[in-house]
Simulated assay, not measured.
Amino acid sequence: MTWLATLLDAGEYIATLPKKEHAVPEWQAAMEALILVTESGGPTMFARIEVMRAMNRHHVLEFNPKGKEPHWGRRKLKRDQ
Results as ranks from 00 to 15, higher is better:
residue 1 M to T: 04
residue 1 M to G: 09
residue 1 M to P: 08
residue 2 T to P: 09
residue 3 W to I: 14
residue 3 W to H: 09
residue 4 L to Y: 01
residue 4 L to A: 01
residue 5 A to Q: 10
residue 5 A to R: 11
residue 7 L to A: 10
residue 7 L to V: 12
residue 8 L to C: 15
residue 8 L to Y: 14
residue 9 D to R: 03
residue 9 D to I: 08
residue 10 A to H: 04
residue 10 A to K: 04
residue 10 A to C: 13
residue 10 A to W: 02
residue 12 E to L: 15
residue 12 E to W: 14
residue 12 E to P: 08
residue 12 E to D: 15
residue 13 Y to R: 04
residue 13 Y to N: 04
residue 13 Y to G: 05
residue 14 I to S: 01
residue 15 A to F: 04
residue 15 A to N: 10
residue 16 T to M: 11
residue 17 L to T: 01
residue 18 P to L: 08
residue 18 P to S: 10
residue 19 K to N: 03
residue 20 K to H: 04
residue 21 E to Y: 02
residue 21 E to D: 11
residue 21 E to N: 05
residue 24 V to G: 00
residue 25 P to S: 04
residue 25 P to F: 05
residue 26 E to V: 00
residue 26 E to F: 00
residue 26 E to S: 05
residue 27 W to T: 00
residue 27 W to D: 03
residue 27 W to L: 00
residue 28 Q to M: 09
residue 28 Q to Y: 01
residue 28 Q to C: 05
residue 28 Q to A: 03
residue 28 Q to K: 09
residue 29 A to N: 06
residue 29 A to M: 06
residue 30 A to D: 03
residue 30 A to Q: 00
residue 31 M to Q: 12
residue 31 M to D: 04
residue 31 M to F: 05
residue 32 E to F: 10
residue 32 E to M: 10
residue 32 E to D: 08
residue 33 A to L: 04
residue 34 L to T: 03
residue 34 L to W: 02
residue 35 I to C: 13
residue 35 I to Y: 13
residue 35 I to M: 13
residue 35 I to R: 14
residue 36 L to Q: 13
residue 36 L to I: 12
residue 36 L to V: 13
residue 37 V to H: 01
residue 37 V to P: 04
residue 37 V to R: 03
residue 37 V to S: 00
residue 37 V to L: 01
residue 37 V to Y: 03
residue 37 V to T: 04
residue 39 E to Q: 09
residue 40 S to P: 03
residue 40 S to R: 11
residue 40 S to W: 08
residue 41 G to A: 07
residue 41 G to E: 01
residue 41 G to W: 06
residue 42 G to L: 02
residue 42 G to I: 05
residue 43 P to E: 10
residue 43 P to Y: 03
residue 44 T to P: 06
residue 44 T to W: 05
residue 45 M to W: 11
residue 46 F to S: 08
residue 46 F to E: 11
residue 47 A to D: 01
residue 47 A to R: 00
residue 47 A to S: 08
residue 48 R to F: 07
residue 49 I to S: 08
residue 49 I to V: 15
residue 50 E to H: 07
residue 51 V to E: 01
residue 51 V to H: 02
residue 51 V to S: 00
residue 51 V to A: 03
residue 52 M to Y: 01
residue 52 M to P: 02
residue 53 R to W: 04
residue 53 R to G: 00
residue 53 R to P: 02
residue 54 A to S: 02
residue 54 A to D: 05
residue 56 N to E: 15
residue 57 R to T: 07
residue 58 H to S: 10
residue 58 H to Y: 09
residue 59 H to Q: 13
residue 59 H to P: 02
residue 60 V to Y: 10
residue 60 V to D: 10
residue 60 V to T: 15
residue 61 L to E: 11
residue 62 E to G: 08
residue 62 E to K: 11
residue 63 F to T: 14
residue 63 F to S: 10
residue 65 P to V: 10
residue 65 P to E: 05
residue 66 K to H: 09
residue 67 G to A: 06
residue 68 K to Y: 12
residue 68 K to E: 12
residue 69 E to Q: 13
residue 69 E to F: 10
residue 69 E to H: 07
residue 70 P to W: 01
residue 71 H to S: 15
residue 71 H to N: 15
residue 72 W to C: 14
residue 72 W to S: 14
residue 73 G to Q: 10
residue 73 G to I: 15
residue 74 R to A: 12
residue 74 R to G: 13
residue 75 R to N: 12
residue 75 R to Y: 14
residue 75 R to K: 14
residue 76 K to Y: 06
residue 76 K to W: 07
residue 77 L to E: 11
residue 77 L to W: 07
residue 78 K to A: 07
residue 79 R to L: 08
residue 80 D to L: 03
residue 80 D to Y: 00
residue 81 Q to V: 15
residue 81 Q to F: 14
